[in-house]
Design a protein around this nucleic acid. Structure first.
Lengths: 206, 206
DNA sequence: CGTTGGAGACTCATGACATTAGTCTTCTCC
DNA sequence: GGAGAAGACTAATGTCATGAGTCTCCAACG
């Protein structure tokens, strides 16, 4: 009634399997990463957790809710990874570290990364905030080459596009030839770097 | 039995609704483009064609087959669009035209373009061939900056990544800010161009 | 120490889809 | 005119998502 805290259970005693939202999302991410995002169904998730499907509705808001939770987790973790990578660096070193961290996250968590895309970020403040927190890091790094805010937006989009495109193609099996992908990624980053430098030096590259 | 051509109907008389594989794929592409790839279900497709779901199995191999057919159509049309755009140009002009055509196709056919991704190109010779035909054009254009075949692979991957990343983010609503996307795309292409030029001029940009 | 409230799991029921099997109609060709 | 197949249909099955209502156990409170 006039309750304040809703009677938390002491954190050692549980009812049945003792599910909670975090454990559900953990399992969802694990399934999505290991078997692909489409494999993340409520039935699969329930089986994984040793529970019946309807029970999941106490912890996530249906299938969409599960996907959203995975996306949120992914976006937050990606943002953290980028932030950590960029700390203490600037300019080319920062961009390279950022790029490597980006790719490393996407490869380590393909399911969560994929969930991150197709984000209905419009009416979802939490997801939107996480996405912004991630983009902020890119802004901070790219600002080294461009002071003007409006122009900066374009450059950030370009860098994000390059990174996203690469990891999307890579994890989707889009690179058919046997050439080492690491080297390709290095060239991609190198091109971005050279492009940014040329831009900063020579002016408008349009 | 010993037939050669399987008794094509004269192309004006039809049985019932007179479906054939091409009409089915046309409708599938239309649905995917208009309502998103996930909206392409057999039920939806059958309704669109005024037919019952099982009837579709005479023309496409189930839902997967429908998705594959859309992907194949998309890959072929994209390849043709790129080829047309690159004809009669070379160097920066060719790359710009290629990029514009790429983006135009993805915007005009978001569903077909999306189907193009997540391609199980491995065991599908037809789809593989279409993908190669598309990539060939990029190879031809980028070769202007790089003669060595092995190195060329990396550069082509970089260019494809940039293009794909941009259109994927764009059509997925990944660009939150109101800045004009055309300008962002122009910067993206400009950066690639500057990067390729710098590379060709100065040597290894790694 | 018994009562009560709620969290969390369950069973049951419904509806959308995909997919397979078997049937029927209607051209087209001989 | 008849054979045969192309192409559409109905019926049946299985997987999922989702909602409604039920049961059980734990914890705090009297």
């Amino acid at each position: 009634m006039a309750a304040g805290i809703p009677a938390r259970r002491t954190p050692g005693s549980r009812t049945r399997p003792g599910l909670d939202a975090e454990r559900v999302v953990d399992a969802a991410v694990a399934i999505a990463d290991a078997e692909g995002l489409p494999a993340l169904t409520l039935a699969r998730l329930a089986a994984e957790l040793g529970v019946r499907t309807p029970s999941l509705y106490h912890h996530v808001d249906g299938l969409d809710g599960a996907h959203r939770a995975v996306a949120l987790r992914g976006m937050r973790d990606l943002g953290t990874a980028l932030r950590d990578a960029a700390i203490g660096r600037s300019g080319p070193g920062a961009l390279t570290a950022l790029a490597d961290a980006y790719r490393a996250y996407a490869l380590a968590h393909p399911g969560a990364y994929a969930a991150t895309q197709r984000a209905p970020t419009a009416d979802d403040a939490e997801l939107r905030a996480a996405a912004e927190r991630t983009t902020e890091v890119v802004f901070a790094v790219v600002r080294h080459w461009e002071r003007d805010d409006e122009e900066l937006v374009h450059l950030v989009r370009a860098v994000r596009s390059a990174l996203h495109g690469f990891v999307a193609l890579e994890s989707g099996g889009g690179f058919g030839l046997p050439a080492p992908r690491e080297a390709s990624f290095a060239r991609l980053v190198g091109i971005q770097l050279a492009g940014l430098e040329a831009r900063a030096a020579g002016g408008a590259v349009d």
